[in-house]
Design a protein around this nucleic acid. Structure first.
Lengths: 201, 201
DNA sequence: GCGCAATATTGCCTGATAGGCAATATTATT
DNA sequence: AATAATATTGCCTATCAGGCAATATTGCGC
């Protein structure tokens, strides 16, 4: 019983709150965003915000978790013959593949990430999301390779390696003087780690 | 001019504040620790605490950064012939080697880590420290292999892989039913990633 | 040794946040 | 349509971050 007006409204509101938080944070920086600003724009009470997220950082982190959840879900539809690191690489890099079609490497996307990752408060938020996301992805990996995360540390190690590689590479890419294609940077990073990871599992 | 009574007192106070924060957090859990409690035990004003750390989480994260700083410093005295991942593994695992001498795998150490890592607020603090620590270690790695962190993403990737592997393995180890030797778990995790990393650099 | 300059500590104050609790409103079920 | 279940809201309190200015402490040149 996951359907129903109740549940869908809940989800929509949750999404609206977190999206609005990101938008405002991009406009002025997260530290210049009050919770009141968020709820005013969305049209709910300050207290309702607290029913969904305990802080604006949480609201942002939630988006990262959702994205990773999608990647984790996508893991189940990769061919079973694929080595785990290859499969993980594919589902993680998937969202970044579309943008390589444009000649310009998505300046707005770059700006968005820059805004988000350059703010220390944001980084904390991202890290918080990353922790939850690692658990999610780790569970999906464990399911795929048929082990338990409680007895086998490898699924979480792989999940962690993947997500932290993603973040690290994104941050490095943002710091580059002249823009390089993001996808190739990501591919290269994942390939380098994978040279060992595909081989240990 | 790093010496002087002034600087050493500063350092001592900083250390005392952060240590006291950890101790109190172990006693009652971080969320039950007020900044007032910390400063009362140390004997300074609440406002002074704010001159050193912006939050109790920061005070804890600082310890992780210090430990990593020590590891990063130790990197320069590893033989130059050592592959980078081997060297990093050594300096990171060094503190955990001594405890393997005892027959008991350091129950108190386990309890301490358990207390710290099981609290979500603590996890945030640790993650915050990890970010700073990654930059520190990344710089040390870059220095060692003679590249710049701005042009070459690999030093930060390696640093990040090392620190996040450390954290992930620690957390997994804490979740084990029957205690296993920590050092061997860590070694195994690092070995698995290293099988690829030593080879890509 | 001594006094001046630099720096650290402290108190006060403001704006902001997390979360418990109870009242109210909205949705689901029969 | 009535009732049960759940969501929203307002109120309230404890807590926190950080600017600012006054005060105390340390370091240095004389």
């Amino acid at each position: 019983m996951t359907t129903g007006l109740r549940e869908s409204k809940r989800l929509a509101l949750r999404n609206s709150l977190s999206l609005t938080t990101v938008l405002l944070a991009r406009e002025r920086g997260l530290s210049n965003v009050r919770v009141v600003d968020i709820v005013n724009r969305v049209g709910v009470s300050r207290r309702t915000f607290g029913n969904y997220f305990s802080s604006k950082e949480d609201a942002i982190a939630d988006r990262h978790v959702s994205r990773t959840q999608a990647a984790a879900d996508a893991l189940s539809i990769r061919p079973a013959s694929e080595p785990i690191w290859t499969a993980v690489t594919h589902v993680i890099l998937e969202p970044y593949k579309t943008e390589s079609k444009h000649t310009s490497p998505s300046q707005s996307e770059r700006d968005e990430l820059l805004q988000i990752l350059s703010d220390p408060e944001m980084q904390s938020a991202v890290d918080r999301g990353a922790r939850a996301a690692t658990a999610t992805l780790g569970a999906a990996i464990a399911r795929r390779i048929g082990v338990s995360t409680t007895t086998d540390p490898r699924p979480c190690l792989v999940a962690n390696a993947a997500l932290s590689t993603l973040l690290t590479t994104l941050e490095h890419w943002l710091g580059l003087e002249e823009p390089q294609p993001l996808l190739s940077q990501l591919s290269e990073s994942f390939r380098q780690l994978g040279a060992g990871l595909d081989h240990t599992l």
